[in-house]
């Protein structure tokens, strides 16, 4: 079983970090993983995206031509990637910023106002972690406790306040979406 996810948004929204944290936690769980960032000129002009593949066996291609999940942090990302999502797949949208909705009927869409939610928690920069809370619950790729532990390792344990807000941001996103 292989699950591929594309994370996409503005540079600075922590999109790449969303990808690496998922890949790292899936690795901790013992899965095969690949993480492929967009790079070079693709990264200029303020957009960022990355692809994470998680599987219980060797991964052939790290590219997601038909991702199971698409995480959309800004509007251009939705237009760029929505048609790639595999039939029956899911799109998670940052509805604080993205006004449009996917035009497709064969996918499930989740709207998470993650920027607003992060702001309420006191740090709008944690919007990506709110989204990861929602994503981890919806995708079921990694258990939330493994994800949180990985996140703490990545962020470093020294910044206590940051770890705290990340935990709360994650919980908020996790609770927001119904299973």
């Amino acid at each position: 079983m292989i699950i591929k996810t594309i994370f996409s948004g503005f540079g600075g929204q922590g999109v790449m970090m969303m990808g690496t944290s998922l890949a790292q936690s899936a690795m901790s769980k013992g899965c095969h993983v690949t993480y492929l960032p967009a790079y070079g000129a693709e990264m200029r002009g303020g957009t960022a995206n990355c692809t994470v593949a998680v599987s219980d066996e060797e991964i052939a291609s790290p590219v997601a031509s038909e991702p199971n999940y698409l995480v959309v942090m800004n509007q251009p990302a939705l237009f760029t990637f929505q048609n790639r999502v595999t039939a029956g797949g899911s799109i998670l949208i940052n509805s604080s910023i993205v006004e449009a909705s996917p035009s497709r009927q064969d996918i499930t869409t989740f709207y998470i106002p993650c920027t607003d939610m992060a702001q309420e928690l006191g740090n709008s920069r944690a919007a990506n972690i709110v989204m990861m809370g929602a994503f981890v619950r919806q995708s079921d790729i990694v258990p939330p406790e493994i994800y949180l532990k990985t996140l703490e390792t990545i962020m470093g344990s020294r910044k206590k306040a940051l770890a705290d807000i990340n935990r709360r941001a994650f919980a908020a996103g996790y609770e927001y979406v119904q299973k």
Binding site: A23, M27, V33, Y35, L36, P37, Y39, P62, V63
Partner: peptide, 10 residues
């Protein structure tokens, strides 16, 4: 190649 260089793997 570029994919091998950019891709993260365990």
């Amino acid at each position: 190649d570029g994919m091998m260089g950019q891709m993260m793997e365990p």
